[in-house]
Simulated assay, not measured.
Amino acid sequence: MRLFVIGADPRRERAFSTWLRAGLSVTLADGVTAGCFEHAVDRFHPVEVRDERADVESLVRMAAGHDGVIALAEGSLVTAATVARELGLPGPGVGAARIARSKIRQREAGERHGLTGPRHAAVTGPDDLVRFFAAGVQAAVLKPADASASASVFAVQGVEEALDRWPQVRAISPSRTGIVEEYLPGAEASVEAVVRDGETVFSSVTRKQTGGPTGFLELAHTTDRADRPDTAVNALVRDLIAAWRVESAILHVEAKLDGDRPVLLEATVRPGGDYITELVSVVHGRDLYLDQAHLALGQPLAPDGPARAQRAEVRFLLASGTVRRNVAPVEVLDGLTDVKIVRQLVPAGSRIPPLTANWARAGYAIGWSADDGESLTGQLRAAVSDLGKLMGTPELT
């Protein structure tokens, strides 16, 4: 079976190794290749695939003869869904992909179908911010309407701070559009859902910790086998599928789950990033990348594999300055029995980028345990702290 991948964001290595082990022939089309995945595929086409600039007709010709089409990049969701439709292959649906690419469209679709969400407004200029805060809102979130990776997502207190942040938000949006929303307190979580023909066949919950200079950089994700979607969360996912008319896709849904009723923040029609798929695989034995391929190929989904842990977690290093040296994982892992992976993301001699997006994080550690989640978190915190010190860029607190 031949799989045509249109765009792949960084840190998707496991997707390609999963498909290789499954015996698939994979073609990648990507003009950015930030993840350097061209060595991991059978065929590679260095072409522009982002939604705003892609030559869809050329991509349809390239994909002809393949059995499935998918995207691993937020910026190419509509392109991939369109190519799949033109070839008569399964996909999330072009309409669902278009909604996923715009937080404004997400809010509009949610309102039409009664999905609970924060008060919000589209922003194309300063006047929109003035009008939004004039209604009495103080704590708010200002972000691009069509960017990912928590890029230029800012917590703002009042209109003056929002106006000050607006140029940064506008600059990173392909459409030069933002959205401002009333801030909702409480912890965030993500729901990963496997959707086939509009029906959910698997779902899981991953808890999220955010912070950093913007307030919304993703610091940690935790998946626990005991923390499964309840009736209200399943209803939220079902309502979202109906509102967006999702056909077949892996849904990544971000929400506030701690109140009486879950509140949708945003969602997309591709597997979650930040190694969430790895956490789900370890805890639930469910390989979302394999599910994504099987959905696109129209094949039966594989049964769950063995669960390796009760709890799995990834933690990220936030730091600043110039990295002094490259750190070998063995320098960090000694004695941390539950920590399995440690990786530096910024090489020696490089200055860590401004901390306004997830891509500016300097490293990470992943681990899992059979029972003691508190011990696991402590070990991961120690690993990330030690990594920062050894790099010469101590962890920001």
Rank of each mutant, 00 (worst) to 15 (best):
3 L>T: 00
15 A>T: 01
18 T>E: 05
19 W>H: 05
21 R>P: 03
24 L>I: 00
29 A>F: 08
38 E>Q: 15
44 F>R: 02
48 E>P: 12
50 R>F: 10
50 R>P: 00
51 D>A: 06
57 E>I: 00
58 S>D: 15
63 A>P: 09
63 A>S: 06
66 H>I: 04
68 G>N: 05
69 V>I: 02
71 A>V: 08
71 A>S: 14
73 A>I: 08
75 G>Q: 11
77 L>P: 08
77 L>H: 04
81 A>L: 09
88 G>T: 10
89 L>N: 04
91 G>R: 02
94 V>Y: 10
94 V>F: 06
95 G>C: 01
97 A>K: 07
102 S>A: 06
104 I>D: 02
107 R>P: 06
107 R>H: 13
108 E>V: 14
115 L>G: 08
123 V>A: 01
124 T>A: 15
124 T>G: 14
127 D>H: 11
133 F>S: 00
134 A>R: 11
138 Q>F: 12
144 P>Q: 02
153 V>L: 08
154 F>Y: 14
156 V>A: 02
156 V>G: 09
159 V>N: 01
161 E>F: 02
163 L>E: 03
163 L>P: 05
164 D>R: 14
166 W>Q: 09
167 P>V: 00
168 Q>K: 12
170 R>K: 15
170 R>A: 15
170 R>G: 05
175 S>D: 14
177 T>Q: 12
188 E>Q: 14
190 S>N: 13
190 S>V: 07
191 V>L: 11
192 E>K: 01
193 A>K: 00
193 A>W: 00
195 V>M: 04
198 G>T: 07
200 T>S: 13
200 T>D: 06
201 V>F: 08
202 F>H: 10
206 T>L: 05
209 Q>M: 11
213 P>N: 11
213 P>H: 07
215 G>K: 01
215 G>I: 07
219 L>I: 08
222 T>E: 12
224 D>C: 13
225 R>I: 11
225 R>M: 00
229 P>G: 10
231 T>V: 15
232 A>E: 15
237 V>F: 01
239 D>P: 07
241 I>R: 04
253 V>A: 09
257 L>V: 10
258 D>V: 11
259 G>W: 00
260 D>K: 09
261 R>A: 14
261 R>I: 04
268 T>E: 13
268 T>G: 15
269 V>G: 06
270 R>H: 01
272 G>T: 06
273 G>L: 05
274 D>R: 10
274 D>V: 04
277 T>Y: 08
283 V>L: 13
308 R>K: 15
310 Q>I: 00
320 S>D: 13
323 V>Y: 09
324 R>G: 09
327 V>K: 03
331 E>D: 14
333 L>T: 06
335 G>E: 03
336 L>N: 04
336 L>T: 03
338 D>L: 11
338 D>N: 11
339 V>M: 05
340 K>L: 12
342 V>I: 08
351 R>S: 15
351 R>W: 01
352 I>R: 05
358 N>Q: 14
360 A>W: 11
362 A>T: 08
363 G>T: 09
370 A>S: 12
371 D>C: 13
372 D>F: 03
377 T>H: 12
378 G>I: 01
380 L>I: 04
384 V>D: 06
385 S>A: 14
390 L>M: 11
390 L>Q: 15
390 L>T: 00
391 M>F: 07
393 T>W: 04
396 L>R: 08
